[in-house]
Design a protein around this nucleic acid. Structure first.
Lengths: 110, 110
DNA sequence: ATATTTGTTCGTTATTTTACGAACAACGAA
DNA sequence: TTCGTTGTTCGTAAAATAACGAACAAATAT
C-alpha cells in the first residue's frame, strides 16, 4: 500500500498555521489585519519581549510569507503580504467552513 | 509604560494554530471535518509515519482540545471536539475577516 | 565627524518538537 | 488460556523554537 502524499494545500495551510502558532505572532498579525502597517519599535513598547526576540518573530512571519518589511529609514515598516495573506485566508476559509451537522453522540471520551 | 497583555483570545487562537501547524495534524483535522470520525489504525495505512508518531500527533490534537477519542475496542474512534472546534472556527473567522470585507486603510502607526 | 536611533545578527541556553523502535497494556478471537 | 490486534508509553536522538544580552550595521541627527 502506497503511503498517502499530503496535499500541497495541507502543507501550505500547516505552514501558515505554524507561523500563527505563537501569541506574539498572532498579536502582530491581528494588528496588521486591522491597521495595515506598524513599526517594529512601536511593538516593543507594548510587547513583553526584547527587540531581538521580536525581530526573530517578525523574521518567522516574513519567512512564512505572511508579512513584509519596507525600509523607511531609520525604521522598518511592516505590513501584511497581501497576496499570501489572501492565500492563507482562502485556505483557512475552506478548511474551517465545512460544517458538521451531525447530532452529538454519546462518547466515552478519553 | 506597562507592557501589553496579549488577550485571552489571541492566546487561544495561537494554541489552536500551533496544533494545526503540522501537515499530519492538518490532514487529520481536515479529514475529521469532512467525515466525522476515523480510526487511528486506518490513518497509519495512508500516512508516512509509524503508529507511535501518529499517536503523538493525535495526543497533541487532543491536548489542544480539537479532537477526542472514543474507545470502540479494540480500536479507538477519533472525532472532532465539536465545542472547541466551533470555538476555533469562530476565532479564526474573526481573525481572518472571512465575513467582513473592509476597505484598505491608509497607513498608521500604532 | 561623532553620537544616537533602529533593527538585525550572533552566541548562548533551555525547552519543545518530531521521529523512530521497543516494550507494554487492553481486549477480542481461537 | 494463549495469541494476535490495536494503540499508548518509554527511551532516545536530532532538530527546531524561544528567549536573552551583546555586538553590529545603517541611517539620521548633532
Amino acid at each position: 500500500m502506497d503511503k498517502l502524499i499530503i496535499t500541497e494545500e495541507q502543507q501550505k495551510a500547516a505552514r501558515y498555521a505554524k507561523a500563527m502558532g505563537h501569541p506574539i505572532r498572532m498579536y502582530v498579525l491581528e494588528l496588521l489585519s486591522k491597521q495595515s502597517c506598524c513599526y517594529s519599535g512601536d511593538l516593543t513598547e507594548y510587547l513583553p519581549i526584547v527587540k531581538s526576540t521580536l525581530s526573530q518573530h517578525l523574521k518567522e512571519l516574513k519567512d512564512a510569507g505572511l508579512i513584509q518589511g519596507e525600509i523607511e529609514a531609520p525604521r522598518i515598516k511592516y505590513c501584511l503580504n497581501k497576496e499570501n495573506w489572501k492565500e492563507a485566508q482562502d485556505l483557512f476559509r475552506k478548511f474551517l467552513k465545512i460544517d458538521i451537522e451531525e447530532p452529538i453522540q454519546k462518547c466515552n471520551t478519553i
